[in-house]
């Protein structure tokens, strides 16, 4: 499967799992999308560990150093899986695994060339020597524990946006 197809398949499946699905081209486009997605003025955790995160960070005047205090996390993630519409968060390189868990809104940026076609493709890459934590995230946190009625945002984010950049 080629790049654009993978990206479309990923975004389609992510949207089916109730994530906001966005595609941008270029940094300017990314910043414009973030401006639309992230409510102005909210406390944002954006660790600035990658080039994309560094580019995005100045957009948020109210940046916090601890994800615990944030309402929104904006971060670049390890990759994505087209088959399931999943983003892949790993604890490598000093990345806090709870950044995508504690704040109510998680905005995940994934580079187009980091989209794996299938679960097999991803696991083949991480299987040998996995980092401490790998979390496959598909859609927002959810439960159906009360009368099987879907409720969103139990302990994890109630809103997940994925941006293919």
């Amino acid at each position: 499967m080629s790049g654009p197809d993978l990206s479309a398949r990923f975004l389609g499946n992510a949207a089916a799992a109730a994530a906001g699905a966005h595609s941008v081209s270029g940094t300017g486009d990314l910043l414009a999308a973030l401006g639309r997605i992230v409510p102005a003025g909210s406390p944002v955790y954006c660790p600035g560990l990658t080039e994309l995160e560094k580019a995005a960070a100045p957009l948020f005047p109210n940046r916090v150093a601890d994800c615990m205090a944030a309402e929104v996390t904006v971060e670049e993630v390890f990759g994505a899986i087209a088959e399931t519409g999943t983003i892949v968060c790993v604890s490598e390189g000093g990345r806090a695994v709870q950044a995508g868990l504690l704040p109510a809104h998680h905005v995940a940026i994934v580079r187009r060339d980091r989209i794996f076609a299938t679960l097999d493709d991803l696991l083949a890459v991480v299987a040998g020597a996995p980092p401490t934590n790998i979390t496959l995230v598909t859609g927002p946190s959810r439960t159906a524990d009360i009368e099987l009625t879907l409720a969103i945002g139990v302990h994890g984010p109630e809103r997940l946006d994925v941006i293919v950049a």
């Binding site: 499946n13 799992a17 399931t84 999943t86 604890s91 390189g93 000093g94 990345r95 806090a96 695994v97 709870q98 991480v126 996995p130 980092p131 401490t132 934590n133 790998i134 979390t135 496959l136 995230v137 598909t138 859609g139 927002p140 946190s141 959810r142 159906a144 994890g156």
Partner: peptide
Amino acid sequence: ATGQTITSYVSVITGPRKPGDATG
């Protein structure tokens, strides 16, 4: 189990926090 394509989260945990890890 629930008719989901995949659960919201699948976590793979390998050992405790290691030097250089920020959390865990």
